[in-house]
Design a binder for these strands. Structure first.
Ligand code: NAD
Ligand code: NAD
Lengths: 221, 221
DNA sequence: ATTATTTTGTGAAGGTTTTCACATAAACAA
DNA sequence: TTGTTTATGTGAAAACCTTCACAAAATAAT
């Protein structure tokens, strides 16, 4: 059966995309464990999902498996990489080289996954010009000129919440269409700009809610 | 109309809880801006949601508004805090005082929201015993005894992925029921333990997918 | 070969979440 | 007062997402 690239009009749900990320990570692991093929059942078990969910998710994008056998690990991993758009390098800039910013620069998972932080910006004179993990920190004043020059496609925002919107306004002016935001604010951006928020308080608050209310988990088969 | 605390059997969706966190943050902002009341319309606008969504979310927990007027900002904030269980202090420990761990210890939003990191653990002899932001780093060997001693209720896991499961096994043995995990692995825990994962690659991959596929956003009114 | 077994891919069913739409109630204006 | 406006709270409808269940296809066993 040939893997087919469906170019369907149907909107794919956010959950499906997130699960593709999980499948990708698990397939990498399976590859290391020398699995040649994997069934939807096994994949589901590892992700605490149902096999039907796994098959349905994949079916939105094509047919990748062999009946009676399962999915070829290496090939499926490649296909998911292609679907997610991580079969290429993304040039990433980070604004705000503080506590969390510095941590992210050192985060090996990003570079392993072809997200390369190649530019850093800050407004602190003590930081500007200094070399941080092999990257010279640029002055935030030069954001609008240097982002296009460096062919940046994704910007990570790690500045204080009070200035995040101003920074993002400039980031958008520079033509950037994708932003990963760590500041605890709702950013306003034009319709054609994608923003994802990392909100750690939200997850802690979920834990808090769950404990206080003995919130039942979704049943898992 | 009296605010009523519904003790319903119905499972509240994860999305609703996450939105409560957003409402809470926005209400804090509205309080600072000296709003006395706020309508579901205004709240929705700030969160990029529909007014109906806001009202429905709140209605699961009681009736907090006044028809013709809206919701009293301070009172609603209190009510949401009570629902989320953040009207009290949570004692938090963090394991793995590395790049991301250190950043989290410095994260003021946590302490402002009554999540207090009061204990740090690591296995690096150079770090153990040293004072980090006013907390002496403990030896990971003492995890099982010191977690109960310090009355810890939530543990943040910020150790390398390869050891995360072992750490979590010990954390669970120590009786902890809530874990915030930063390691990129699917942790196995008993049914009565809540785990939330912070997966930053997932969000970057979502951005990647969205850009490559020109993924339409959900329509927003 | 033939049969039993495995496992995919997918319509349809079932379940959950969001949105609609309106009765209801409070506030405000005249 | 009375009427007009505003805005909640909520069943019902619509949209969306997950699971079911089974035909189809491939493998493995006899
Ligand atoms: N520390 C954490 O663990 C953590 C976790 C989640 C989210 N956040 C959020 O991430 C952001 C940064 O947090 P942090 O703890 O790293 O703070 P930080 O103060 O350590 O870092 C902020 C950095 O941004 C720089 N900066 C300030 N204004 C700037 C401007 N106008 N232009 C460019 N750079 C500017 C500062 O010089 C500093 O280097 C905050 O919004 C915070 O709420 C932090
Ligand atoms: N750096 C980031 O921005 C980032 C972002 C998201 C997730 N993560 C994840 O968070 C984890 C930590 O990442 P990091 O960049 O901070 O790494 P790091 O190496 O800087 O920190 C890891 C810390 O854990 C300690 N440690 C190692 N083994 C331990 C053990 N058995 N018991 C106790 N402590 C132990 C180390 O001494 C070190 O202090 C990793 O799983 C990583 O994938 C990191």
């Amino acid at each position: 059966m040939e893997p087919t690239a469906k170019l369907s009009k149907k909107r794919i749900s956010e959950s499906t995309i997130h699960r593709l990320s999980l499948y990708y990570r698990t397939l990498s692991l399976l590859e290391k464990e020398n699995y040649e093929t994997v069934s939807s059942k096994e994949l589901a078990k590892r992700e605490k999902l149902t096999p039907a969910q796994v098959r349905k998710d994949l079916s939105f994008f094509g047919t990748f498996g062999t009946r009676g056998l399962g999915y070829p690990v290496i090939e499926l991993k490649k296909q998911i990489a292609s679907i997610l758009g991580i079969d290429r390098q993304w040039r990433v800039a980070l604004v705000g080289v503080g506590n969390i910013g510095s941590a992210l620069v050192s985060y090996k998972e990003f570079s392993r996954q072809d997200f390369h932080i190649v530019k850093l910006f800050d407004n602190d004179q003590r930081k500007i010009g200094s070399n941080h993990k092999g990257i010279v920190i640029s002055d935030i004043k030069n954001l609008e000129t240097e982002l296009p020059e460096a062919k940046i496609e994704i910007v990570i925002v790690a500045v204080p919440a009070t200035v995040a919107q101003y920074i993002v306004d400039d980031v958008v002016k520079a033509g950037i269409k994708a932003i990963l935001n760590f500041a605890p604010v709702n950013l306003k951006v034009p319709d054609d700009v994608y923003v994802r928020n990392e909100n750690m308080s939200m997850e802690l608050e979920y834990l808090s809610f769950a404990m206080v209310n003995e919130h039942p988990k979704k049943k898992v088969k």
